[in-house]
C-alpha cells in the first residue's frame, strides 16, 4: 500500500553518471595537467591584470540581510599596499567607521600565502593593539557572509587551479576555473571562479563547503576602470544554506596615494582616527 519512493539522490546520481560517461566519450582527449596549466594561466592573467596599482584607498558599506529579511549595515574603509612579489601577500588596513561602538577599530593584515596572515587589531576603547593569533581565515567577517579572505586581495599561489570550460555569463564570455585552497583551515574544498575573457576580471565565484556542497555565491559587478586597473564596486555574497546575504558596496577608489610600508606597521594603528 505504501510505496516508498526511490531516493531522488540516487536517481540524480544515475543521471550524473550517464552524463559524465557521455561527456567523457565526446570530450577531446586531454593529457594530464593540461586543464591545471590552463587554469593557472587564466588565474594568473587575471591576478596580474592589476599589477602595478601600487596602493589604494576606498570606503565601503556592508549591508547584512538575514533569512527573515532584516538588514544591518557597517561602514569601513580599506587601505591596501601592493607587494610586487607573488611569494608574499599584500598589506591591508581595515578601519571601521560604523557602528559607532566600533568606530576607529582598525585591523591590520599582512597577508601570507600558505601560512596564517599576521593580523593586529587596535581597540580604541582598550587603547591597545592586540595581535590575533588565529589560524582561522575562514570565519565570517563582522557577522557577514564574507570571510575576510573572500574580499581582500586574492593571492595567486594560495590555490591550485583547474580549467573547467567556457561559459556565457551576464552577456560575457567567461572562463570557468576551479581553484583548490592550498592553505590549512580553509572552510572550502574548492571555489569555482568565472573570469571574463575581455578584461580578465572575476565576475562570479561559487564556494563549496567542506562536504563539497554549494555554500555561497559571490557576484562581483559594477566594474569600473581606473587607468587600466579594474575594480568591482558591488560584491554580493549569497549564502545558499542559511539564506542570509551580504552586499559590499565600494565608493570610488583612489590609487597611488603615496602609502608606504610605514603606514602598515602595527605601530601606526594607535594613531588612526
Amino acid at each position: 500500500m505504501m510505496h516508498k519512493r526511490k531516493p531522488r539522490s540516487s536517481r540524480l546520481a544515475a543521471i550524473l553518471a550517464v552524463l559524465t560517461l557521455g561527456y567523457s566519450l565526446i570530450s577531446p582527449v586531454t593529457w594530464a595537467g593540461e586543464a591545471e596549466d590552463k587554469g593557472l594561466e587564466i588565474a594568473a592573467r587575471s591576478d596580474r591584470s592589476d599589477t602595478g596599482f601600487g596602493d589604494s584607498e576606498v570606503t565601503a558599506v556592508m549591508t547584512l540581510t538575514n533569512a527573515a529579511g532584516a538588514t544591518s549595515t557597517r561602514e569601513m574603509y580599506f587601505k591596501t599596499l601592493e607587494r610586487a612579489s607573488e611569494q608574499v601577500g599584500d598589506k591591508s588596513l581595515t578601519v571601521f567607521v560604523t557602528p559607532r561602538d566600533v568606530q576607529g577599530t582598525a585591523l591590520l593584515s599582512h597577508a601570507k600565502i600558505l601560512e596564517p596572515d599576521d593580523q593586529w587589531l587596535f581597540l580604541p576603547a582598550l587603547k591597545r593593539v592586540k595581535r590575533i593569533s588565529s589560524a582561522n581565515k575562514s570565519g565570517p567577517f563582522v557577522g557577514s557572509e564574507f570571510a575576510f579572505e573572500d574580499f581582500t586581495s586574492t593571492e595567486l599561489n594560495k590555490y591550485s587551479y583547474k580549467f573547467i570550460g567556457e561559459e556565457e555569463f551576464d552577456g560575457m564570455k567567461v572562463d570557468v576555473v576551479e581553484r583548490f585552497p592550498l592553505y590549512e583551515n580553509s572552510g572550502y574544498t574548492r571555489q569555482v571562479a568565472y573570469i571574463d575573457q575581455e578584461v580578465y576580471q572575476t565576475r562570479k565565484i561559487d564556494f563549496y563547503d567542506r562536504k563539497d556542497t554549494l555554500l555561497k555565491t559571490l557576484t562581483l559587478s559594477d566594474y569600473r576602470e581606473y587607468d587600466g586597473v579594474w575594480r568591482a564596486h558591488t560584491l554580493t555574497m549569497q549564502n545558499h544554506q542559511t539564506n542570509k546575504s551580504t552586499t559590499l558596496s565600494y565608493g570610488d577608489y583612489t590609487f597611488k596615494t603615496g602609502l608606504s610600508d610605514n603606514d602598515f606597521d602595527k605601530g601606526v594603528l594607535k594613531t588612526i582616527r
Binding site: F96, L126, S138, V142, A147
Partner: peptide, 23 residues
C-alpha cells in the same frame, strides 16, 4: 563600557573559524 564590549565582540568574531561564528 559599551564600546569596549562591542570591540571585544568584533575582535572575537574576527578570530573564529568557519562555521563557529556568533551569527
Amino acid at each position: 563600557d559599551r564600546e569596549l564590549s562591542a570591540q571585544y565582540l568584533l575582535l572575537y568574531e574576527l578570530s573564529l573559524p568557519y562555521g563557529l561564528d556568533l551569527n
